[in-house]
């Protein structure tokens, strides 16, 4: 039987953060990319709404920021003093 217990939002947020950190400087990730990764990893235990909430945690805590590079992406915040 498939385990359909939801993955806690905080765990999703942490996994999303790791993904963004791993891709920093190599690949720009859109919010949809993070959502698709999480759903692919957790299956029915993770919904689009859960991913939305997890992303909100990352943005509201300033661990990640939105950036605009032709479209909107999720990135790590700039290091203090760095020119954008």
């Amino acid at each position: 039987m498939t385990d359909t217990t939801s993955v806690p939002i905080e765990i999703l947020a942490e996994e999303m953060y790791q993904l963004v950190a791993d891709c920093a400087g190599k690949k720009n990730l859109k919010p949809g990319d993070l959502t698709k990764e999480m759903i692919a990893k957790h299956g029915p235990a993770c919904s689009k709404d859960d991913c939305k909430k997890a992303l909100r945690i990352l943005i509201d805590s300033s661990r990640c920021v939105y950036s605009y590079l032709g479209g909107t992406y999720i990135q790590l915040p700039p290091k203090p003093g760095s020119e954008i």
Binding site: I59, D60, S62, V65, Y66, S67, Y68, L69, G70, T72, Q75, P77, P78, I84
Partner: peptide, 17 residues
């Protein structure tokens, strides 16, 4: 030049760098 990381806390839109 336009774009970048500027914005206000919590929002991903509304500011064009």
């Amino acid at each position: 030049k336009h774009g970048g990381l500027v914005g206000v806390l919590g929002y991903g839109g509304g500011v064009i760098g």
